[in-house]
């Protein structure tokens, strides 16, 4: 499982022979995930890691206003690098177990996600609650993207 400690994750679907296996896609989606650190130290590596991404997942901490505000920065950085290509994704609010310390409300985050064309979900990694949801959302939206594109290919000739 991917570490959820950092604020931004990027995700890819893989079945190239340039990677270790040659996959057959039946009706499953295999994700190739890059967990990218939010620290300034890693900023330069991100440019290389974020080449041609197909989906994104931004994780923020519901007990930190700053963490939530930074989502804008992460999304802008990604959009700048993918020049107008539609990239599906999900915003994830983590640490929902810390009820008393919560500062970012669900509808506030949900609204931001919607405005930016992202889906939204909340999880508690500590309590292992709902942690599969972001992965399902990513897999589904990526598969949806594939189905749509294949229809376009079919309509070309």
């Amino acid at each position: 499982l991917v570490k959820w400690t950092s604020s931004c994750l990027l995700m890819f679907c893989n079945d190239g022979a340039h990677f270790q296996k040659n996959y057959t896609l039946v009706s499953h989606v295999e994700l190739f995930l890059f967990d990218s650190g939010g620290k300034e130290l890693f900023a330069e590596i991100l440019d290389r890691l974020w080449e041609q991404p197909n989906a994104l997942c931004i994780v923020y901490d519901v007990t930190s206003e700053e963490s939530f505000n930074n989502c804008t920065k992460w999304l802008e950085k990604l959009r700048a690098q993918t020049s107008g290509m539609h990239i599906p994704g999900v915003l994830v609010g983590n640490k929902t177990d810390l009820i008393d310390r919560r500062v970012v409300e669900r509808n506030q985050a949900q609204e931001w996600a919607e405005t930016n064309g992202l889906e939204y979900c909340e999880i508690s990694v500590k309590e292992m609650e709902n942690y599969e949801a972001p992965f399902r959302i990513l897999a589904n939206s990526f598969h949806q993207l594939y189905k749509e594109k294949v229809e376009t290919f079919r309509s070309l000739v």
Binding site: F12, C13, N14, D15, G16, A17, H18, F19, Y23, L25, F32, Q52, N54, F142, Y146, K149, V150, F153, R154, V157
Partner: peptide
């Protein structure tokens, strides 16, 4: 035929 095709299923490079 030009109406049938091979589709890539994600990531690049592909070959």
């Amino acid at each position: 035929r030009s109406d049938t095709f091979w589709a890539t299923t994600g990531m690049f490079p592909q070959e």
